[in-house]
């Protein structure tokens, strides 16, 4: 029975991926991509990776989906997938098809025969009492491999800076001019504290159960995005020093902590046993704040970018 469900999910994921790439219009492509992401999230929940499922559903399907929909305003909507007149020749199509087929066979063969090394589960389980948290994934993220997480906070920050480099910072501080529906504003006002609270709950829950900094960060970022859409560009209009502080707090505190540990004679990110739980919670909170701020800023930038084309989003049929 459960094997059937898993097979069905796997087939559905492949089917949605194919349909997404063959969709005739770009909006269809985006929404099928949403569906693909959510199917993957279900698959991960089936595989026991609840943290990954939450992260995928929230960041990869949710946040990226918002960016993709926003980007649709700039790209032609009704056009069928663009190949049109200048379709590649039959020979090159055949070559690509054959190459992908060979690759597929090799990939399946490789995936089928990955040697079973036993993984690091036992090691992670043995060291769990010394990590300061009770949930193994959080222990890996913020204790065993915390330099990964540190650099990841840096990567999100880098993405924001790279966005600024693509078109100048002025998009970012552009005031919102459109009229916002009063009902939408009320609902957003209602949702903001709820999102904040649920984010904080997930953050704290990460200590013992699936949840943690990234999931909380996305919820907080979603709150920021909603506020921005509702006509309160909170992040874009706050004082620059506060904005910079929020953006860099996670990365900076991680760095400071690492240096302090090294100055104390330990390795980078070798948490002292007694305070590990508390320190991890502080680091997580700051990292979540920074990531949330960066996500909001990325969205604000994107949204300002389309305001330049000054053309409201209209579906394909117009």
């Amino acid at each position: 029975m459960s094997l059937w469900i898993d097979s069905l999910l796997a087939v559905l994921a492949v089917f949605l991926a194919v349909r997404c790439l063959l969709a005739p219009t770009l909006p269809q492509c985006v929404f099928l991509f949403f569906a693909f992401g959510l199917t993957l999230a279900l698959a991960w929940a089936r595989l026991g990776a609840v943290d990954v499922a939450i992260a995928e559903a929230a960041i990869a399907a949710g946040f990226l989906g918002v960016l993709l929909i926003d980007a649709l305003r700039d790209f032609s909507r009704s056009r069928s997938t663009g190949e049109g007149g200048d379709r590649p020749s039959r020979v090159s199509q055949g070559l690509v098809g054959a190459g992908v087929l060979v690759f597929l066979v090799v990939a399946i063969e490789a995936v089928w025969r990955v040697p079973n090394g036993g993984g690091l589960t036992a090691l992670a389980a043995d060291n769990l009492p010394q990590s300061g948290v009770d949930h193994p994934v959080t222990a890996v993220l913020l204790n065993y491999r915390s330099y990964d997480t540190w650099l990841e906070v840096g990567v999100v920050l880098m993405a924001l800076l790279a966005l600024f480099a693509t078109g100048g910072r002025e998009y970012f501080c552009r005031p919102v001019v459109r009229a916002v529906d009063p009902l939408l504003r009320q609902v957003i006002l209602l949702f903001t504290p709820v999102l904040f609270l649920v984010g904080a709950f997930l953050l704290y829950l990460g200590k013992t159960e699936p949840g943690g900094a990234f999931q909380a960060a996305v919820l907080w970022g979603a709150g920021g995005i909603l506020l921005h859409l509702g006509g309160w560009p909170v992040f874009a209009s706050m004082a620059p020093w506060l904005r910079h502080l929020l953006l860099t707090a996670g990365f900076g505190f991680f760095l400071l902590l690492g240096f302090l540990f090294m100055a104390g004679g330990g390795a980078l990110f070798e948490y002292p046993l007694a305070q590990a739980g508390l320190l991890i919670l502080v680091v997580e909170t700051l990292a979540a704040l920074s990531i949330a701020a960066a996500l909001t800023a990325i969205f604000a930038y994107f949204n300002g970018m389309s305001a330049e084309s000054a053309e409201p989003f209209t579906p394909a049929s117009s």
């Binding site: 595989l47 026991g48 990954v52 690091l120 994934v137 222990a139 890996v140 065993y144 491999r145 990964d148």
Partner: peptide, 10 residues
């Protein structure tokens, strides 16, 4: 389940 790949995927 092995938490290291999970963390890497997140």
């Amino acid at each position: 389940a092995d938490p290291v790949p999970h963390a890497m995927v997140i």
